[in-house]
């Protein structure tokens, strides 16, 4: 029973996370000069102590979409004999990171007020 509830919680948080994935990626890239796909998944896992797990099936389409929208640019580098693709923020991407993070923060505050009206009264 407990296991089932845990699973449901994970499922719901992954759905919630999906909507904020682009913002998370932009925020991470704002803090780090450049990152590659696998590194992003590991960084999120590390920051959230394993609570959030970004799946590759969701991450790569997000990275490719942001690249197509010109918010990200890429550069390749040879690492361990293979080509590694790094993602970096463009000028537009930097601006988008700031506005999307602010938007998400506002949303979280509003959501908190909604879930706990006492917070809103203060």
């Amino acid at each position: 029973m407990h296991k089932k509830i845990m699973y449901t919680c994970r499922m719901s948080s992954s759905k919630l996370l999906k909507g904020s994935l682009a913002t998370i990626v932009l925020k991470l890239l704002e803090e780090h000069e450049k990152m590659y796909g696998y590194e992003i998944t590991q960084r999120v896992k590390e920051i959230t102590a394993g609570e959030f797990k970004i799946t590759e099936g969701a991450l790569y389409p997000t990275l490719h979409k942001l690249e197509a929208e010109n918010l990200l640019t890429t550069e390749t580098q040879k690492v361990d004999g293979r080509v590694r693709k790094y993602y970096k923020l463009t000028k537009e991407g930097n601006a988008a990171a700031v506005s999307k993070v602010a938007e998400l923060e506002e949303f979280i505050v509003s959501l908190q007020k909604l879930l706990d009206p006492k917070l809103g009264l203060g």
């Binding site: 590659y36 696998y38 790569y60 361990d80 293979r82 590694r84 693709k85």
Partner: peptide
């Protein structure tokens, strides 16, 4: 190249 690097990094 992207998938090859991802899999080997993992």
């Amino acid at each position: 190249e992207e998938m090859y690097d991802h899999i080997l990094s993992s």
